[in-house]
Amino acid sequence: PIEVVGLLNDLYTLYDAILRNYDVYKVETIGDTYMVASGLPQRNGSRHAAEIAYMALDILSSVGDFRVRHAPSVPIHIRIGLHSGPCMAGAVGVTRYCLFGDTVNTASRMESTGLPYRIHMSRSTVQALLSLDEGYKIDVRGQTELKGKDVEETYWLVGKAGFPRPLPTPLHIKPV
C-alpha cells in the first residue's frame, strides 16, 4: 500500500506540474483516475478542447520518462480519454467543485475503452479541435462500443504540428 500511494503521489505531482501550463481545472482524483476539465469553472470559448488536447500530449510525453521508485524498470502505461460537451457543475462543500452528467461519463468511457499510450477521443472533441485548425494529428480508431451508450466512431489523437517532445510508442494490444 505504501508503494502504491508513493507511485500515485509521484505521478499526480508530475500531472499537477504540467497542468499549471494550461487553462484547465483539476476536478478530482479517484484511485488511479485523474480528471481534468477546461472551460469550467471559467469559460474559455472554443479553447477547451485545445487546452485539454495539448495537455494530454504533454502528459503522455512526460510519462514516457517517468520511473516508478520501487520498480524503475516497470513503465507506466497510461490511457487518456477526451470528450467535449455540456455538463452540470456545482460547488460541493467549501473547496470542491464537481462535474456531473453525460459528458463526464463519456469522457470516462473514452479512457476506459482506450489503449496504453493512446489518447482516445470522441467525435465532438475531434470536431472542436479541427475547427481551430491548429495542426492536431488525428487517426480514426473506428467503431467502439461504449458501456451505457451505443457503438460510436472514435479517434486517436496522435500528435500536433510543432509539438516539441517525443511521444511513447503505443503498444499493439487488441482490446477484448
Score class of each variant (00 low, 15 high):
residue 61 S to T: 11
residue 52 I to D: 03
residue 114 G to Q: 02
residue 127 Q to W: 04
residue 31 G to L: 04
residue 91 A to D: 14
residue 158 V to K: 06
residue 92 V to P: 05
residue 100 F to L: 14
residue 159 G to A: 09
residue 150 D to Y: 01
residue 121 M to V: 01
residue 112 S to Q: 10
residue 143 Q to S: 13
residue 107 A to C: 11
residue 153 E to A: 12
residue 88 M to W: 04
residue 10 D to W: 01
residue 93 G to W: 01
residue 147 K to E: 08
residue 21 N to V: 03
residue 80 I to D: 06
residue 85 G to C: 08
residue 74 V to R: 08
residue 137 K to M: 14
residue 30 I to E: 12
residue 153 E to M: 13
residue 29 T to Y: 08
residue 53 A to I: 03
residue 155 Y to E: 10
residue 160 K to I: 02
residue 164 P to Q: 09
residue 126 V to R: 14
residue 45 G to T: 00
residue 132 L to Q: 15
residue 26 K to P: 09
residue 72 P to E: 04
residue 83 H to Q: 05
residue 109 R to S: 07
residue 131 S to Q: 13
residue 64 G to F: 10
residue 113 T to Q: 10
residue 39 G to L: 04
residue 107 A to T: 11
residue 135 G to D: 04
residue 164 P to C: 03
residue 72 P to A: 09
residue 14 L to P: 05
residue 60 L to K: 07
residue 144 T to C: 04
residue 121 M to P: 05
residue 47 R to M: 14
residue 2 I to A: 15
residue 32 D to F: 07
residue 102 D to Q: 06
residue 113 T to G: 06
residue 36 V to D: 00
residue 24 V to P: 01
residue 64 G to A: 12
residue 109 R to H: 06
residue 108 S to I: 06
residue 167 L to P: 12
residue 39 G to R: 02
residue 98 C to N: 07
residue 142 G to Q: 05
residue 125 T to H: 03
residue 151 V to G: 04
residue 45 G to Q: 12
residue 130 L to W: 09
residue 146 L to H: 03
residue 53 A to C: 03
residue 128 A to D: 12
residue 3 E to I: 10
residue 134 E to H: 08
residue 122 S to I: 07
residue 12 Y to M: 08
residue 54 Y to C: 12
residue 82 L to M: 13
residue 171 L to K: 09
residue 66 F to C: 09
residue 151 V to A: 07
residue 27 V to S: 05
residue 165 R to A: 06
residue 89 A to D: 01
residue 156 W to S: 03
residue 38 S to F: 02
residue 156 W to Q: 01
residue 117 Y to G: 02
residue 125 T to I: 05
residue 123 R to M: 10
residue 138 I to T: 08
residue 175 P to I: 01
residue 13 T to A: 14
residue 63 V to S: 11
residue 57 L to S: 04
residue 124 S to D: 15
residue 49 A to E: 07
residue 159 G to M: 11
residue 129 L to S: 06
residue 50 A to N: 08
residue 53 A to G: 00
residue 42 Q to I: 05
residue 122 S to G: 14
residue 128 A to K: 07
residue 78 I to C: 14
residue 105 N to Q: 05
residue 62 S to Q: 12
residue 136 Y to F: 15
residue 133 D to N: 15
residue 45 G to F: 00
residue 21 N to P: 00
residue 12 Y to R: 06
residue 130 L to T: 11
residue 69 R to N: 09
residue 58 D to N: 10
residue 13 T to Q: 14
residue 53 A to Q: 08
residue 62 S to L: 05
residue 59 I to L: 07
residue 18 I to R: 13
residue 154 T to G: 01
residue 77 H to I: 03
residue 45 G to C: 01
residue 51 E to I: 08
residue 8 L to Y: 13
residue 98 C to Q: 07
residue 116 P to R: 01
residue 158 V to L: 04
residue 117 Y to P: 00
residue 142 G to F: 08
residue 5 V to T: 13
residue 72 P to I: 12
residue 64 G to K: 04
residue 51 E to D: 13
residue 41 P to L: 00
residue 113 T to H: 13
residue 167 L to T: 06
residue 76 I to Q: 03
residue 20 R to P: 01
residue 63 V to T: 09
residue 166 P to R: 15
residue 48 H to S: 07
residue 21 N to G: 14
residue 148 G to R: 01
residue 147 K to G: 07
residue 58 D to A: 13
residue 78 I to H: 03
residue 158 V to T: 15
residue 91 A to V: 15
residue 56 A to P: 02
residue 10 D to S: 13
residue 44 N to T: 09
residue 13 T to P: 00
residue 139 D to G: 00
residue 91 A to G: 10
residue 87 C to Q: 08
